[in-house]
Design a protein around this nucleic acid. Sequence first.
DNA 1: GTAGTACGCAAGTGGCAGCTTGCCTGTCAA
DNA 2: TTGACAGGCAAGCTGCCACTTGCGTACTAC
Lengths: 98, 98
Amino acid sequence: MDAAPELFRALGDATRRVILDELADRDGQTLFEICGRLAMKHGLGSSRQAISQHLAVLEQAGLVHTRRQGRYKFHHLDTGPLRAIVERWPIDRQEPLP
Amino acid sequence: MDAAPELFRALGDATRRVILDELADRDGQTLFEICGRLAMKHGLGSSRQAISQHLAVLEQAGLVHTRRQGRYKFHHLDTGPLRAIVERWPIDRQEPLP
DNA sequence: GTAGTACGCAAGTGGCAGCTTGCCTGTCAA
DNA sequence: TTGACAGGCAAGCTGCCACTTGCGTACTAC
């Protein structure tokens, strides 16, 4: 019935959506990179642990894949799960009639 | 920056997503129709007020438009706001390389 | 008018999600 | 080995969200 509630739960938080924006702008960032850029570009003062937990939620939703390399962990965006949304509720072709 | 947080908030709840499914299956239902069909088809025992509040959230997100006619209030689905999702994070063309 | 229907409003409650805090593990350079 | 860096784990707190409860309003049939 309700496939992938983690997907919608992940999209429900504003900070997580900004993280997706950030990864869409520059893919493969580490946790500290994301923290820094969120503070710089978006003025978000979230702590490192908060961002880490957000990334875990995004990864559980399949929107972010991780790749370990030494002591670094790179995060990659995957917009594939978003396809389930438009497949579930087909989007009309432009505006309705006034 | 973060356009329409109400949209993602509305999609965050499983009951609201089922309501969208129901309206996609049969558009223009009243509150009591939706209550009945949710109980029948989906086994959800939500009260009338709960469904009413869910519909208010969906309407605030622009996913549902209402039309009053006498003492009835018909609810119509509008998937237009969903377009903001796929426009914000473009969906890749099928699977990544293995 | 009266009863019944369809729906709205508002206060109160319980549970969960996001955040913090503190400590720990693993990796690299000196 | 020692220190610094990148990240993880788990308990506790707080605010919000979904739901209930109770009453109120508008429309319709009789």
